[in-house]
Design a protein around this nucleic acid. Sequence first.
DNA 1: TATTGTTATACTCTATAACTATA
DNA 2: TATAGTTATAGAGTATAACAATA
Lengths: 162, 162
Amino acid sequence: MPKPSAEKSAPKKHTALHLQNFLPYRLVVLADQVSHCIAHIYGDRFNLTRPEWRVLAALVELGPVSATEIAAHSTLDKMSTSRAVNGLEEKGYLRRADAADDRRNKIIILNPTGQELYNKIAPLVLAQEAYLLEIFSKEERSTLDRLLRGLEQRAQDLQEQK
Amino acid sequence: MPKPSAEKSAPKKHTALHLQNFLPYRLVVLADQVSHCIAHIYGDRFNLTRPEWRVLAALVELGPVSATEIAAHSTLDKMSTSRAVNGLEEKGYLRRADAADDRRNKIIILNPTGQELYNKIAPLVLAQEAYLLEIFSKEERSTLDRLLRGLEQRAQDLQEQK
DNA sequence: TATTGTTATACTCTATAACTATA
DNA sequence: TATAGTTATAGAGTATAACAATA
Protein backbone atom coordinates (compact mmCIF):
# COMPACT_ATOMS: atom_id res chain seq x y z
CA MET A 1 0.00 0.00 0.00
CA PRO A 2 1.63 3.26 -1.10
CA LYS A 3 2.01 5.95 1.49
CA PRO A 4 1.02 9.52 0.71
CA SER A 5 3.74 11.42 -1.11
CA ALA A 6 4.73 13.54 1.85
CA GLU A 7 5.94 10.52 3.70
CA LYS A 8 7.11 8.30 0.89
CA SER A 9 9.72 10.54 -0.74
CA ALA A 10 12.08 12.62 1.30
CA PRO A 11 12.94 15.41 -1.14
CA LYS A 12 16.52 15.12 -2.36
CA LYS A 13 17.33 18.60 -3.58
CA HIS A 14 15.55 20.47 -0.84
CA THR A 15 17.31 18.85 2.03
CA ALA A 16 19.86 21.51 1.16
CA LEU A 17 17.65 23.87 3.12
CA HIS A 18 18.56 23.43 6.74
CA LEU A 19 17.46 26.38 8.82
CA GLN A 20 20.64 26.20 10.87
CA ASN A 21 22.78 26.62 7.74
CA PHE A 22 20.46 28.88 5.79
CA LEU A 23 22.11 32.27 5.56
CA PRO A 24 18.98 34.46 5.67
CA TYR A 25 17.76 32.63 8.76
CA ARG A 26 21.14 32.85 10.45
CA LEU A 27 21.39 36.56 9.72
CA VAL A 28 17.93 37.25 11.15
CA VAL A 29 18.52 35.23 14.30
CA LEU A 30 21.93 36.78 14.86
CA ALA A 31 20.69 40.32 14.22
CA ASP A 32 17.71 39.75 16.52
CA GLN A 33 19.95 38.57 19.34
CA VAL A 34 22.41 41.39 18.94
CA SER A 35 19.78 44.07 18.59
CA HIS A 36 17.99 42.80 21.68
CA CYS A 37 21.17 43.23 23.67
CA ILE A 38 21.65 46.74 22.31
CA ALA A 39 17.99 47.58 22.88
CA HIS A 40 18.44 46.49 26.46
CA ILE A 41 20.73 49.47 26.86
CA TYR A 42 19.03 52.31 25.02
CA GLY A 43 15.55 50.91 25.66
CA ASP A 44 15.40 49.59 29.21
CA ARG A 45 18.08 51.80 30.69
CA PHE A 46 17.51 55.03 28.82
CA ASN A 47 13.90 54.68 27.72
CA LEU A 48 14.42 55.18 23.99
CA THR A 49 12.73 53.28 21.19
CA ARG A 50 14.86 51.88 18.39
CA PRO A 51 13.91 54.63 15.93
CA GLU A 52 14.63 57.23 18.63
CA TRP A 53 18.04 55.75 19.27
CA ARG A 54 18.82 55.74 15.56
CA VAL A 55 17.73 59.34 15.15
CA LEU A 56 19.86 60.34 18.11
CA ALA A 57 22.91 58.60 16.66
CA ALA A 58 22.27 60.08 13.23
CA LEU A 59 21.97 63.58 14.68
CA VAL A 60 25.29 63.28 16.47
CA GLU A 61 26.94 62.10 13.29
CA LEU A 62 25.33 64.52 10.90
CA GLY A 63 24.81 67.62 13.00
CA PRO A 64 21.64 69.69 12.48
CA VAL A 65 19.83 68.31 9.44
CA SER A 66 16.36 67.82 7.98
CA ALA A 67 14.16 64.84 8.76
CA THR A 68 14.73 63.49 5.26
CA GLU A 69 18.48 63.34 5.79
CA ILE A 70 18.04 61.60 9.11
CA ALA A 71 15.72 59.06 7.54
CA ALA A 72 18.20 58.31 4.76
CA HIS A 73 21.11 57.93 7.14
CA SER A 74 19.33 55.74 9.65
CA THR A 75 17.34 53.49 7.31
CA LEU A 76 14.05 54.69 8.75
CA ASP A 77 10.99 55.70 6.76
CA LYS A 78 9.64 59.22 7.11
CA MET A 79 6.78 58.24 9.45
CA SER A 80 9.03 56.45 11.89
CA THR A 81 11.46 59.33 11.70
CA SER A 82 8.71 61.84 12.35
CA ARG A 83 7.44 59.94 15.35
CA ALA A 84 10.94 59.37 16.70
CA VAL A 85 11.75 63.07 16.38
CA ASN A 86 8.50 63.85 18.18
CA GLY A 87 9.39 61.48 20.97
CA LEU A 88 12.87 62.94 21.39
CA GLU A 89 11.46 66.46 21.32
CA GLU A 90 8.91 65.66 24.03
CA LYS A 91 11.72 64.30 26.18
CA GLY A 92 13.67 67.50 25.62
CA TYR A 93 16.56 65.96 23.69
CA LEU A 94 16.17 68.07 20.56
CA ARG A 95 14.43 71.10 19.10
CA ARG A 96 13.25 72.08 15.64
CA ALA A 97 13.97 75.22 13.70
CA ASP A 98 12.71 76.43 10.35
CA ALA A 99 15.16 76.04 7.50
CA ALA A 100 16.36 79.22 5.89
CA ASP A 101 15.87 78.17 2.28
CA ASP A 102 12.75 76.01 2.25
CA ARG A 103 10.02 76.53 4.79
CA ARG A 104 8.75 72.96 4.41
CA ASN A 105 12.01 71.84 5.94
CA LYS A 106 12.38 71.65 9.66
CA ILE A 107 15.99 71.52 10.76
CA ILE A 108 16.41 69.25 13.74
CA ILE A 109 18.94 70.27 16.34
CA LEU A 110 20.24 68.23 19.23
CA ASN A 111 19.98 69.85 22.65
CA PRO A 112 22.85 69.60 25.15
CA THR A 113 20.84 67.02 27.10
CA GLY A 114 20.54 65.03 23.91
CA GLN A 115 24.28 65.06 23.42
CA GLU A 116 24.75 64.07 27.06
CA LEU A 117 22.35 61.17 26.63
CA TYR A 118 24.28 60.03 23.60
CA ASN A 119 27.56 60.34 25.48
CA LYS A 120 26.18 57.95 28.08
CA ILE A 121 24.81 55.39 25.64
CA ALA A 122 27.55 55.31 23.00
CA PRO A 123 30.33 53.80 25.15
CA LEU A 124 27.97 51.11 26.40
CA VAL A 125 26.83 49.95 22.97
CA LEU A 126 30.38 50.21 21.63
CA ALA A 127 31.45 47.92 24.44
CA GLN A 128 28.86 45.39 23.30
CA GLU A 129 30.21 45.57 19.77
CA ALA A 130 33.75 45.18 21.08
CA TYR A 131 32.68 42.10 23.02
CA LEU A 132 31.21 40.55 19.88
CA LEU A 133 34.42 41.14 17.93
CA GLU A 134 36.83 40.31 20.73
CA ILE A 135 37.40 36.77 19.52
CA PHE A 136 38.59 37.92 16.11
CA SER A 137 42.06 39.03 15.07
CA LYS A 138 42.55 42.33 13.29
CA GLU A 139 42.75 40.44 10.03
CA GLU A 140 39.57 38.51 10.70
CA ARG A 141 37.75 41.73 11.50
CA SER A 142 38.70 43.29 8.22
CA THR A 143 37.70 40.08 6.42
CA LEU A 144 34.34 40.17 8.18
CA ASP A 145 33.94 43.78 7.17
CA ARG A 146 34.73 42.97 3.56
CA LEU A 147 32.37 39.98 3.43
CA LEU A 148 29.56 41.96 5.02
CA ARG A 149 30.05 44.79 2.51
CA GLY A 150 29.69 42.19 -0.22
CA LEU A 151 26.50 40.83 1.28
CA GLU A 152 25.12 44.32 1.81
CA GLN A 153 25.73 45.19 -1.83
CA ARG A 154 24.22 41.92 -2.97
CA ALA A 155 21.16 42.31 -0.72
CA GLN A 156 20.69 45.80 -2.14
CA ASP A 157 20.76 44.40 -5.66
CA LEU A 158 18.35 41.65 -4.74
CA GLN A 159 15.89 44.10 -3.25
CA GLU A 160 16.02 46.38 -6.27
CA GLN A 161 15.27 43.52 -8.63
CA LYS A 162 11.99 42.74 -6.92
CA MET B 1 31.06 83.68 24.99
CA PRO B 2 30.96 79.94 25.68
CA LYS B 3 28.53 77.85 23.67
CA PRO B 4 26.40 75.15 25.32
CA SER B 5 28.34 71.93 25.78
CA ALA B 6 26.54 70.00 23.06
CA GLU B 7 27.94 72.32 20.45
CA LYS B 8 31.25 73.27 21.96
CA SER B 9 32.83 69.85 22.39
CA ALA B 10 32.53 67.25 19.68
CA PRO B 11 33.04 64.07 21.71
CA LYS B 12 36.37 62.48 20.85
CA LYS B 13 35.96 58.87 21.86
CA HIS B 14 32.39 58.50 20.72
CA THR B 15 32.96 59.50 17.15
CA ALA B 16 33.97 55.85 16.90
CA LEU B 17 30.27 55.12 16.67
CA HIS B 18 29.30 55.57 13.05
CA LEU B 19 26.05 53.85 12.23
CA GLN B 20 27.40 52.76 8.84
CA ASN B 21 30.31 50.94 10.50
CA PHE B 22 28.56 49.81 13.66
CA LEU B 23 28.25 46.05 13.50
CA PRO B 24 24.89 45.65 15.28
CA TYR B 25 23.33 48.26 13.03
CA ARG B 26 24.81 46.69 9.90
CA LEU B 27 23.59 43.24 10.91
CA VAL B 28 20.06 44.50 11.53
CA VAL B 29 19.86 46.41 8.27
CA LEU B 30 21.30 43.51 6.29
CA ALA B 31 19.04 40.95 7.95
CA ASP B 32 16.00 43.18 7.39
CA GLN B 33 16.77 43.54 3.70
CA VAL B 34 17.39 39.85 3.20
CA SER B 35 14.39 38.73 5.20
CA HIS B 36 12.14 41.13 3.31
CA CYS B 37 13.23 39.51 0.07
CA ILE B 38 12.60 36.05 1.46
CA ALA B 39 9.26 37.13 2.93
CA HIS B 40 8.29 38.39 -0.49
CA ILE B 41 8.32 34.75 -1.59
CA TYR B 42 6.69 32.84 1.26
CA GLY B 43 4.52 35.79 2.24
CA ASP B 44 3.24 37.52 -0.87
CA ARG B 45 3.37 34.53 -3.19
CA PHE B 46 2.37 31.71 -0.85
CA ASN B 47 0.51 33.57 1.86
CA LEU B 48 2.52 32.39 4.85
CA THR B 49 3.59 34.45 7.84
CA ARG B 50 7.20 34.28 8.97
CA PRO B 51 6.46 31.99 11.91
CA GLU B 52 4.37 29.75 9.61
CA TRP B 53 7.22 29.51 7.13
CA ARG B 54 9.68 28.63 9.89
CA VAL B 55 7.38 25.95 11.30
CA LEU B 56 6.95 24.50 7.81
CA ALA B 57 10.70 24.36 7.28
CA ALA B 58 11.27 22.88 10.72
CA LEU B 59 8.66 20.18 10.12
CA VAL B 60 10.30 19.11 6.87
CA GLU B 61 13.66 18.91 8.59
CA LEU B 62 12.54 17.23 11.78
CA GLY B 63 9.65 15.08 10.65
CA PRO B 64 6.66 14.68 12.99
CA VAL B 65 7.53 16.33 16.29
CA SER B 66 6.00 18.19 19.21
CA ALA B 67 5.41 21.94 19.25
CA THR B 68 8.22 22.35 21.77
CA GLU B 69 10.74 20.78 19.42
CA ILE B 70 9.57 22.98 16.57
CA ALA B 71 9.90 26.06 18.73
CA ALA B 72 13.44 25.15 19.74
CA HIS B 73 14.53 24.43 16.21
CA SER B 74 13.02 27.55 14.67
CA THR B 75 13.81 30.12 17.37
CA LEU B 76 10.14 30.83 17.99
CA ASP B 77 8.45 31.09 21.36
CA LYS B 78 5.65 28.73 22.22
CA MET B 79 2.89 31.28 21.54
CA SER B 80 4.13 32.13 18.07
CA THR B 81 4.61 28.44 17.40
CA SER B 82 1.10 27.65 18.57
CA ARG B 83 -0.42 30.33 16.37
CA ALA B 84 1.68 29.35 13.38
CA VAL B 85 0.68 25.71 13.76
CA ASN B 86 -2.94 26.82 13.96
CA GLY B 87 -2.60 28.85 10.80
CA LEU B 88 -0.98 26.00 8.90
CA GLU B 89 -3.61 23.59 10.15
CA GLU B 90 -6.44 25.85 9.00
CA LYS B 91 -4.85 26.03 5.57
CA GLY B 92 -4.68 22.24 5.51
CA TYR B 93 -0.91 21.94 5.49
CA LEU B 94 -0.61 19.85 8.63
CA ARG B 95 -2.55 17.85 11.18
CA ARG B 96 -2.13 17.05 14.84
CA ALA B 97 -2.13 13.70 16.58
CA ASP B 98 -1.93 12.78 20.23
CA ALA B 99 1.45 11.56 21.36
CA ALA B 100 1.58 7.97 22.52
CA ASP B 101 3.50 8.56 25.73
CA ASP B 102 2.28 11.91 27.04
CA ARG B 103 -1.18 13.14 26.29
CA ARG B 104 -0.19 16.77 26.83
CA ASN B 105 1.96 16.43 23.74
CA LYS B 106 0.45 16.96 20.34
CA ILE B 107 2.56 15.54 17.55
CA ILE B 108 2.44 17.75 14.49
CA ILE B 109 2.49 16.01 11.13
CA LEU B 110 2.93 17.59 7.73
CA ASN B 111 0.23 16.79 5.15
CA PRO B 112 1.17 16.01 1.55
CA THR B 113 -0.03 19.47 0.56
CA GLY B 114 2.32 20.91 3.17
CA GLN B 115 5.25 19.02 1.69
CA GLU B 116 4.21 20.18 -1.78
CA LEU B 117 4.07 23.77 -0.60
CA TYR B 118 7.54 23.42 0.86
CA ASN B 119 8.81 21.86 -2.36
CA LYS B 120 7.64 24.95 -4.20
CA ILE B 121 9.09 27.49 -1.78
CA ALA B 122 12.42 25.89 -0.91
CA PRO B 123 14.06 26.17 -4.36
CA LEU B 124 13.02 29.81 -4.61
CA VAL B 125 14.48 30.88 -1.28
CA LEU B 126 17.58 28.77 -1.87
CA ALA B 127 18.02 30.64 -5.13
CA GLN B 128 17.96 33.91 -3.19
CA GLU B 129 20.61 32.61 -0.84
CA ALA B 130 22.68 31.45 -3.80
CA TYR B 131 22.39 34.90 -5.34
CA LEU B 132 23.67 36.50 -2.15
CA LEU B 133 26.66 34.19 -2.01
CA GLU B 134 27.39 34.14 -5.72
CA ILE B 135 30.09 36.77 -5.48
CA PHE B 136 32.12 34.73 -2.99
CA SER B 137 34.61 31.97 -3.68
CA LYS B 138 34.28 28.61 -1.96
CA GLU B 139 36.97 29.71 0.45
CA GLU B 140 35.27 32.99 1.22
CA ARG B 141 32.01 31.19 1.90
CA SER B 142 33.60 28.94 4.45
CA THR B 143 35.32 31.93 6.03
CA LEU B 144 31.96 33.72 6.23
CA ASP B 145 30.46 30.62 7.79
CA ARG B 146 33.23 30.46 10.36
CA LEU B 147 33.04 34.15 11.24
CA LEU B 148 29.25 34.00 11.58
CA ARG B 149 29.52 30.97 13.86
CA GLY B 150 31.86 33.01 16.00
CA LEU B 151 29.47 35.92 16.15
CA GLU B 152 26.53 33.62 16.88
CA GLN B 153 28.39 32.08 19.78
CA ARG B 154 29.43 35.47 21.07
CA ALA B 155 25.92 36.90 20.75
CA GLN B 156 24.62 33.91 22.66
CA ASP B 157 27.13 34.58 25.45
CA LEU B 158 26.23 38.26 25.48
CA GLN B 159 22.52 37.51 25.80
CA GLU B 160 23.06 35.06 28.63
CA GLN B 161 25.09 37.57 30.64
CA LYS B 162 22.21 40.01 30.74
C1' DT C 1 2.06 68.82 -9.91
C1' DA C 2 5.73 67.33 -6.75
C1' DT C 3 7.81 67.40 -2.21
C1' DT C 4 8.38 67.77 3.11
C1' DG C 5 6.54 66.45 6.85
C1' DT C 6 2.44 64.96 9.84
C1' DT C 7 -1.41 62.25 11.07
C1' DA C 8 -4.93 58.29 10.80
C1' DT C 9 -5.84 53.76 10.30
C1' DA C 10 -5.44 49.06 10.36
C1' DC C 11 -2.57 45.34 10.79
C1' DT C 12 1.01 42.61 12.57
C1' DC C 13 4.33 41.32 16.33
C1' DT C 14 5.64 40.80 20.77
C1' DA C 15 5.55 40.05 25.75
C1' DT C 16 3.18 38.99 29.86
C1' DA C 17 0.43 36.40 31.95
C1' DA C 18 -3.63 33.61 32.85
C1' DC C 19 -5.58 29.39 31.81
C1' DT C 20 -6.38 23.94 30.54
C1' DA C 21 -5.12 19.48 30.73
C1' DT C 22 -2.16 16.47 31.87
C1' DA C 23 1.71 14.56 34.62
C1' DT D 1 4.00 21.34 41.84
C1' DA D 2 5.61 21.33 37.14
C1' DT D 3 5.02 20.94 32.15
C1' DA D 4 2.78 21.27 27.14
C1' DG D 5 0.10 23.91 24.93
C1' DT D 6 -3.57 27.50 24.27
C1' DT D 7 -5.74 31.85 24.66
C1' DA D 8 -6.30 36.90 26.13
C1' DT D 9 -4.64 41.20 26.37
C1' DA D 10 -2.06 45.26 25.82
C1' DG D 11 1.89 47.58 23.84
C1' DA D 12 4.97 48.38 20.20
C1' DG D 13 6.11 48.43 15.47
C1' DT D 14 4.88 48.74 10.48
C1' DA D 15 2.59 49.84 6.09
C1' DT D 16 -0.77 52.33 3.36
C1' DA D 17 -2.67 56.11 2.57
C1' DA D 18 -4.66 60.57 3.21
C1' DC D 19 -3.49 65.13 4.48
C1' DA D 20 -1.39 70.12 5.08
C1' DA D 21 1.88 73.37 3.79
C1' DT D 22 5.06 74.76 0.57
C1' DA D 23 7.46 74.78 -3.72
